[in-house]
Amino acid sequence: MPFVALPSHRLHYRIDGQHGPWLMFCNSLGTDLHMWDAQASALSGQFRVLRYDRRGHGASGTPPAPYTLTDLGADAIALMDALSIEQTHYCGLSIGGLVAQWLALHHPRRITRVVACATASKIGTGQGWQTRMADVRAHGLQGMREATAERWFGERFRAGNAGQVDAVLDQFVATSVEGYVGCCAALAEADLRVAISRNTVPLLAVSGDDDPVCPPSDLAAIAAAASGMHVSLPGRHLLNIESADALNDVLRRFLQ
């Protein structure tokens, strides 16, 4: 497995495709780069698709918590630098969508187009994330499995795609507690609601029409503030899995 060594940890990454512009994907909280398998398969003929496990997730290293949104954004830039990538499209979901917004604001010359999926400019509340961190420290992630399935996937999708759903949830409960809590700390502090109005990068916000975590109104607000576009697709929080074909078509149209 390929890794990039950073001062406090290493990042695991994967590249699919050999031609076209770069397209980076950033995963959601409690998942790894395989959440983007459908996108990599569909788009690697037109793009050089770069996926990576955010710190504390998947096969990447886990530096001590807490983390900040700046830490997560800096990891993405460090990976680009290590691979000599000057510019890329960037697509992130949930916390990955916050990283996408941060990159567009802080490194607009490096990001050609940005896609923010199932996210917000501020996700949840500081107190809510503090409570989540305490619960996970005390009890781990296994007890959250059922509730996570309901937040991430609609009932019909769960019933018809049990194997796929179980694979995602297996990765969720296998996530490092330290990495999960570290990213919760970043979410507790992250707030781009004012800053996003300064965005200059072409932006697409994509919502799941039944997402209980980041509803369509959150994505519409990002698009309005950032002078971008908003599209809503069927599904809940992990819309890239539940509406994979539809999202792939949206990405092709926006990025080309």
Rank of each mutant, 00 (worst) to 15 (best):
H89M: 05
R151A: 09
N161Q: 15
A195C: 06
S243T: 13
L50C: 11
D218C: 14
W22T: 10
D71N: 14
A104E: 01
G96A: 08
A147K: 14
V99F: 05
A116L: 12
R253H: 06
A116H: 05
S121D: 09
G182S: 00
A223V: 12
R110G: 00
T148W: 05
A246L: 14
L192V: 09
A190Y: 06
L93R: 02
V114I: 11
H139E: 10
L187G: 00
F254V: 11
G179Y: 05
L239T: 15
I77C: 09
R156L: 13
D211G: 04
V206R: 06
A226I: 09
H89L: 10
R132V: 13
R145C: 05
A147C: 04
G143T: 12
L255E: 04
G96V: 13
L23P: 11
P63I: 02
R253K: 12
A78G: 14
L29W: 04
H237I: 12
H106P: 02
T62Q: 00
G96E: 11
H139W: 07
V250I: 12
D249R: 14
L11P: 11
G73L: 00
D209E: 09
T125S: 15
S60G: 09
S8D: 15
C91V: 15
M80I: 11
I77Q: 10
L238V: 15
S232G: 14
W102K: 00
F172T: 10
A42T: 12
I196D: 08
T131W: 00
Y180V: 02
M1F: 07
G235T: 13
D135L: 14
D135R: 13
E86A: 15
S94Q: 00
S44M: 01
L33Y: 10
T88Y: 07
G143M: 11
V99P: 04
I95N: 05
Q164R: 14
H34S: 13
F254S: 06
L93E: 12
T112N: 09
L233V: 11
V213M: 11
S207V: 09
I123T: 03
F47R: 10
L141D: 01
S41L: 12
C184M: 01
D249H: 11
V4E: 09
S232Q: 14
Y180S: 00
A205S: 13
V177R: 13
A159S: 15
H34C: 02
M24V: 14
L251K: 06
G154N: 10
S227W: 04
G73M: 07
P21G: 02
G30M: 04
Y180H: 09
H237L: 07
V136D: 02
P216I: 08
R252K: 15
A244E: 08
L251D: 00
Q256C: 09
H89V: 11
Q46Y: 05
G20E: 08
P2E: 08
C117L: 15
L103G: 01
A185P: 10
G208A: 05
A134G: 06
D166F: 10
L233P: 11
V4R: 01
A186Y: 04
